[in-house]
Protein backbone atom coordinates (compact mmCIF):
# COMPACT_ATOMS: atom_id res chain seq x y z
CA UNK A 1 0.00 0.00 0.00
CA UNK A 2 1.43 3.31 -1.04
CA UNK A 3 1.11 5.95 1.59
CA UNK A 4 0.45 9.49 0.52
CA UNK A 5 3.21 12.02 1.21
CA UNK A 6 1.06 13.68 3.82
CA UNK A 7 0.46 10.40 5.58
CA UNK A 8 4.16 9.66 5.61
CA UNK A 9 4.84 12.77 7.57
CA UNK A 10 5.19 11.82 11.15
CA UNK A 11 3.76 14.57 13.25
CA UNK A 12 5.17 15.18 16.71
CA UNK A 13 1.77 14.33 18.13
CA UNK A 14 1.94 10.85 16.65
CA UNK A 15 5.48 10.30 17.78
CA UNK A 16 4.61 11.48 21.26
CA UNK A 17 2.20 8.59 21.46
CA UNK A 18 5.07 6.11 21.02
CA UNK A 19 6.47 5.32 24.40
CA UNK A 20 9.71 3.79 23.15
CA UNK A 21 12.28 6.31 21.99
CA UNK A 22 14.01 3.75 19.75
CA UNK A 23 10.72 3.12 18.09
CA UNK A 24 10.33 6.83 17.60
CA UNK A 25 13.74 7.09 16.02
CA UNK A 26 13.32 4.02 13.87
CA UNK A 27 9.89 5.15 12.73
CA UNK A 28 11.10 8.60 11.86
CA UNK A 29 14.23 7.49 10.07
CA UNK A 30 12.66 4.62 8.18
CA UNK A 31 9.83 6.91 7.28
CA UNK A 32 11.95 9.52 5.65
CA UNK A 33 14.28 6.90 4.09
CA UNK A 34 11.33 5.48 2.25
CA UNK A 35 10.58 8.97 1.10
CA UNK A 36 14.11 9.32 -0.26
CA UNK A 37 13.76 6.29 -2.51
CA UNK A 38 16.96 4.79 -1.28
CA UNK A 39 19.12 7.72 -2.18
CA UNK A 40 22.85 6.78 -2.31
CA UNK A 41 23.78 10.01 -0.52
CA UNK A 42 22.20 9.70 2.74
CA UNK A 43 24.90 8.75 5.20
CA UNK A 44 27.76 10.34 6.99
CA UNK A 45 30.59 8.14 5.54
CA UNK A 46 29.18 5.35 3.62
CA UNK A 47 30.72 5.97 0.18
CA UNK A 48 34.11 4.75 -0.93
CA UNK A 49 36.11 7.75 -2.13
CA UNK A 50 39.78 6.91 -2.82
CA UNK A 51 42.91 5.21 -1.75
CA UNK A 52 45.63 7.29 -0.25
CA UNK A 53 48.99 6.64 1.09
CA UNK A 54 49.24 5.53 4.65
CA UNK A 55 50.55 8.13 7.02
CA UNK A 56 51.47 7.69 10.58
CA UNK A 57 48.51 7.83 12.82
CA UNK A 58 46.12 6.15 10.39
CA UNK A 59 44.17 3.26 11.69
CA UNK A 60 45.94 0.12 10.45
CA UNK A 61 42.56 -1.56 10.13
CA UNK A 62 41.86 0.53 7.05
CA UNK A 63 45.07 -0.48 5.26
CA UNK A 64 44.29 -2.33 2.07
CA UNK A 65 46.44 -5.36 2.53
CA UNK A 66 45.61 -6.77 -0.87
CA UNK A 67 47.13 -3.75 -2.59
CA UNK A 68 50.09 -3.95 -0.23
CA UNK A 69 50.63 -7.58 -1.28
CA UNK A 70 50.67 -6.67 -4.92
CA UNK A 71 52.55 -3.37 -4.81
CA UNK A 72 54.24 -3.43 -1.39
CA UNK A 73 52.84 -0.03 -0.83
CA UNK A 74 50.56 0.75 1.99
CA UNK A 75 47.38 2.45 1.10
CA UNK A 76 44.35 3.03 3.16
CA UNK A 77 40.79 3.13 1.92
CA UNK A 78 39.32 6.56 2.02
CA UNK A 79 35.63 7.14 2.42
CA UNK A 80 33.72 10.33 1.84
CA UNK A 81 33.17 12.06 5.08
CA UNK A 82 35.53 9.84 6.86
CA UNK A 83 36.49 12.73 9.09
CA UNK A 84 32.88 13.24 10.20
CA UNK A 85 32.16 9.78 11.30
CA UNK A 86 31.86 10.59 14.95
CA UNK A 87 28.55 12.06 15.85
CA UNK A 88 28.22 14.11 18.98
CA UNK A 89 24.71 15.01 19.92
CA UNK A 90 24.63 17.96 22.29
CA UNK A 91 21.18 18.28 23.77
CA UNK A 92 20.17 21.38 25.67
CA UNK A 93 18.02 20.22 28.60
CA UNK A 94 17.59 23.55 30.32
CA UNK A 95 14.30 24.65 31.81
CA UNK A 96 13.43 26.79 28.80
CA UNK A 97 13.40 23.66 26.65
CA UNK A 98 10.38 22.50 28.64
CA UNK A 99 8.24 25.21 27.07
CA UNK A 100 5.30 23.79 25.25
CA UNK A 101 2.33 25.40 23.60
CA UNK A 102 1.53 22.48 21.34
CA UNK A 103 1.57 18.72 21.84
CA UNK A 104 5.25 18.29 22.51
CA UNK A 105 7.75 20.44 24.33
CA UNK A 106 10.96 21.62 22.79
CA UNK A 107 12.88 19.12 24.92
CA UNK A 108 10.74 16.26 23.71
CA UNK A 109 11.17 17.33 20.14
CA UNK A 110 14.90 17.66 20.70
CA UNK A 111 15.00 14.17 22.14
CA UNK A 112 13.19 12.79 19.09
CA UNK A 113 15.61 14.62 16.85
CA UNK A 114 18.63 13.39 18.78
CA UNK A 115 17.34 9.82 18.77
CA UNK A 116 16.70 9.94 15.05
CA UNK A 117 20.20 11.25 14.36
CA UNK A 118 21.70 8.63 16.62
CA UNK A 119 19.74 5.89 14.94
CA UNK A 120 20.73 7.20 11.51
CA UNK A 121 24.41 7.17 12.48
CA UNK A 122 24.35 3.79 14.16
CA UNK A 123 22.59 2.37 11.15
CA UNK A 124 25.83 3.17 9.28
CA UNK A 125 27.98 1.90 12.15
CA UNK A 126 29.21 5.38 13.02
CA UNK A 127 30.07 6.10 16.62
CA UNK A 128 27.50 8.16 18.42
CA UNK A 129 28.11 10.17 21.54
CA UNK A 130 25.75 12.21 23.65
CA UNK A 131 26.14 15.18 25.91
CA UNK A 132 23.12 16.50 27.82
CA UNK A 133 23.67 19.90 29.32
CA UNK A 134 21.98 22.90 30.86
CA UNK A 135 24.20 25.12 32.95
CA UNK A 136 26.58 22.18 33.27
CA UNK A 137 27.09 18.85 31.67
CA UNK A 138 24.44 16.58 33.10
CA UNK A 139 25.18 13.48 31.10
CA UNK A 140 28.02 12.38 28.93
CA UNK A 141 28.27 9.31 26.71
CA UNK A 142 31.43 8.98 24.69
CA UNK A 143 31.05 8.12 21.02
CA UNK A 144 30.91 4.42 20.35
CA UNK A 145 29.74 2.21 17.57
CA UNK A 146 29.65 -0.91 19.59
CA UNK A 147 26.58 -2.97 19.80
CA UNK A 148 24.30 -1.62 22.45
CA UNK A 149 25.71 1.89 22.34
CA UNK A 150 22.60 3.14 20.53
CA UNK A 151 20.42 1.73 23.28
CA UNK A 152 22.63 3.48 25.79
CA UNK A 153 22.20 6.78 24.00
CA UNK A 154 18.49 6.30 23.68
CA UNK A 155 18.18 5.35 27.32
CA UNK A 156 20.09 8.46 28.33
CA UNK A 157 17.84 10.57 26.15
CA UNK A 158 14.79 8.94 27.53
CA UNK A 159 15.72 9.72 31.09
CA UNK A 160 16.49 13.35 30.36
CA UNK A 161 14.26 15.86 32.12
CA UNK A 162 14.26 19.66 32.01
CA UNK A 163 16.94 21.10 34.22
CA UNK A 164 17.98 24.60 35.18
CA UNK A 165 19.43 27.57 33.36
CA UNK A 166 21.47 27.41 30.21
CA UNK A 167 25.14 28.17 30.07
CA UNK A 168 26.23 27.38 26.54
CA UNK A 169 29.54 29.20 26.86
CA UNK A 170 30.57 27.36 29.98
CA UNK A 171 29.38 24.02 28.70
CA UNK A 172 31.19 24.33 25.34
CA UNK A 173 34.40 25.02 27.16
CA UNK A 174 33.96 21.68 28.84
CA UNK A 175 32.93 19.93 25.63
CA UNK A 176 36.39 20.44 24.25
CA UNK A 177 37.71 18.14 26.94
CA UNK A 178 35.46 15.36 25.72
CA UNK A 179 35.65 15.92 21.99
CA UNK A 180 39.31 15.57 21.25
CA UNK A 181 38.71 13.87 17.93
CA UNK A 182 36.92 15.48 15.09
CA UNK A 183 33.39 14.67 14.33
CA UNK A 184 29.96 15.96 13.54
CA UNK A 185 28.56 17.93 16.41
CA UNK A 186 24.79 18.31 16.43
CA UNK A 187 23.72 20.98 18.89
CA UNK A 188 20.04 20.82 19.72
CA UNK A 189 18.99 23.90 21.65
CA UNK A 190 16.63 26.85 21.72
CA UNK A 191 19.70 29.07 21.76
CA UNK A 192 18.41 31.65 24.21
CA UNK A 193 21.79 33.22 24.58
CA UNK A 194 23.81 36.08 23.25
CA UNK A 195 24.88 35.14 19.71
CA UNK A 196 28.24 36.74 20.26
CA UNK A 197 28.82 34.75 23.41
CA UNK A 198 27.66 31.63 21.63
CA UNK A 199 30.04 32.27 18.81
CA UNK A 200 32.79 32.79 21.28
CA UNK A 201 32.04 29.51 23.00
CA UNK A 202 31.59 27.35 19.93
CA UNK A 203 34.37 28.74 17.80
CA UNK A 204 37.15 26.66 19.44
CA UNK A 205 35.33 23.51 18.49
CA UNK A 206 35.00 24.65 14.94
CA UNK A 207 38.63 25.45 14.79
CA UNK A 208 39.55 21.96 15.90
CA UNK A 209 37.81 20.57 12.82
CA UNK A 210 34.44 19.68 14.19
CA UNK A 211 31.60 19.94 11.77
CA UNK A 212 29.01 21.78 13.83
CA UNK A 213 25.33 21.70 13.11
CA UNK A 214 22.86 23.76 15.16
CA UNK A 215 19.29 22.57 15.43
CA UNK A 216 17.53 25.70 16.64
CA UNK A 217 14.41 24.27 18.24
CA UNK A 218 11.60 26.70 18.84
CA UNK A 219 7.95 26.36 19.77
CA UNK A 220 5.22 27.95 17.63
CA UNK A 221 4.15 29.81 20.76
CA UNK A 222 7.51 31.50 20.80
CA UNK A 223 7.62 32.24 17.11
CA UNK A 224 4.09 33.53 16.81
CA UNK A 225 2.70 34.30 20.27
CA UNK A 226 -0.95 35.30 20.07
CA UNK A 227 -2.65 36.79 23.12
CA UNK A 228 -5.80 38.83 23.25
CA UNK A 229 -5.09 40.40 26.57
CA UNK A 230 -2.04 41.46 28.45
CA UNK A 231 -0.24 38.53 29.95
CA UNK A 232 2.09 38.05 32.85
CA UNK A 233 5.00 35.93 31.61
CA UNK A 234 7.25 34.03 33.94
CA UNK A 235 10.71 33.10 32.77
CA UNK A 236 11.01 29.36 33.04
CA UNK A 237 14.66 29.53 33.92
CA UNK A 238 15.02 32.59 36.08
CA UNK A 239 11.49 32.78 37.48
CA UNK A 240 11.29 36.47 36.72
CA UNK A 241 7.93 37.84 35.66
CA UNK A 242 7.05 40.45 33.12
CA UNK A 243 3.69 41.76 32.02
CA UNK A 244 3.54 42.08 28.30
CA UNK A 245 0.86 43.58 26.14
CA UNK A 246 -0.46 41.82 23.04
CA UNK A 247 0.50 44.82 21.01
CA UNK A 248 4.10 44.34 21.96
CA UNK A 249 4.01 40.65 21.14
CA UNK A 250 2.59 41.34 17.73
CA UNK A 251 5.06 44.00 16.73
CA UNK A 252 8.16 44.61 18.75
CA UNK A 253 8.66 41.07 19.88
CA UNK A 254 8.47 39.73 16.37
CA UNK A 255 11.07 42.22 15.34
CA UNK A 256 13.41 41.32 18.15
CA UNK A 257 12.92 37.64 17.51
CA UNK A 258 13.88 38.03 13.88
CA UNK A 259 16.93 40.00 14.93
CA UNK A 260 17.87 37.26 17.35
CA UNK A 261 17.40 34.50 14.77
CA UNK A 262 19.43 36.49 12.34
CA UNK A 263 22.13 37.07 14.90
CA UNK A 264 22.32 33.41 15.75
CA UNK A 265 22.42 32.47 12.09
CA UNK A 266 25.20 34.94 11.48
CA UNK A 267 27.11 33.72 14.48
CA UNK A 268 26.84 30.16 13.26
CA UNK A 269 27.87 31.14 9.80
CA UNK A 270 30.80 33.08 11.16
CA UNK A 271 32.26 29.99 12.72
CA UNK A 272 31.50 27.79 9.72
CA UNK A 273 28.67 26.02 11.42
CA UNK A 274 25.30 25.20 9.95
CA UNK A 275 22.01 26.18 11.55
CA UNK A 276 18.59 24.85 10.93
CA UNK A 277 15.45 26.16 12.55
CA UNK A 278 13.21 23.35 13.77
CA UNK A 279 9.67 24.09 14.83
CA UNK A 280 8.17 21.66 17.27
CA UNK A 281 5.00 21.41 15.17
CA UNK A 282 7.01 20.29 12.15
CA UNK A 283 6.86 16.57 11.34
CA UNK A 284 10.08 14.91 12.33
CA UNK A 285 10.80 13.17 9.06
CA UNK A 286 10.37 16.43 7.25
CA UNK A 287 12.91 18.03 9.58
CA UNK A 288 15.33 15.14 8.96
CA UNK A 289 14.81 15.39 5.21
CA UNK A 290 15.46 19.11 5.39
CA UNK A 291 18.59 18.43 7.34
CA UNK A 292 19.94 15.92 4.85
CA UNK A 293 19.14 18.15 1.91
CA UNK A 294 20.87 20.92 3.76
CA UNK A 295 23.90 18.72 4.29
CA UNK A 296 23.90 17.67 0.67
CA UNK A 297 24.05 21.25 -0.51
CA UNK A 298 27.00 22.10 1.70
Amino acid sequence: MNATPAARLLTPEVLAGLANLELVARTAVEGFLVGLHRSPRFGFSQEFAEFRAYVEGDDPRFVDWNVFARTERTYVRRYQGETNTRLFVLLDASASMAYQSATVSKLQYGKYLAAALAYLASRQHDPVGLIVFDESIRHYRPPSSRAGSLQGVLHALDSTTPGKRTDIEGCFLKFREHMSRRGLVAVISDLYCDPVAMSRAVQPLAYTGHDIMFFHVLDPGELEPRWRDSVLFEDMESGQTMEVSPEYLESRYQQRLLEHLDGVRKAAGGMGADLMLARTDEPLDRALRRYLMFRQRH
Binding site: Y99, D190, S230, E234, T241, M242, V244, Y253, H260
Partner: peptide, 20 residues
Protein backbone atom coordinates in the same frame (compact mmCIF):
# COMPACT_ATOMS: atom_id res chain seq x y z
CA UNK B 1 -2.15 37.29 41.97
CA UNK B 2 -2.80 37.18 38.32
CA UNK B 3 -2.14 33.92 36.64
CA UNK B 4 1.42 33.65 35.46
CA UNK B 5 2.02 32.16 32.09
CA UNK B 6 5.33 30.31 31.75
CA UNK B 7 7.48 31.44 28.88
CA UNK B 8 10.75 30.01 27.68
CA UNK B 9 12.75 33.16 28.11
CA UNK B 10 12.13 36.80 28.75
CA UNK B 11 15.27 37.60 26.85
CA UNK B 12 13.42 39.03 23.92
CA UNK B 13 10.57 40.63 25.90
CA UNK B 14 10.12 44.08 27.35
CA UNK B 15 7.61 45.22 29.95
CA UNK B 16 4.53 46.88 28.43
CA UNK B 17 2.28 49.64 29.69
CA UNK B 18 -0.97 47.80 30.36
CA UNK B 19 -4.33 49.56 30.07
CA UNK B 20 -7.21 47.59 31.37
Amino acid sequence: TRTKEPFASLMLLEPSQIHR
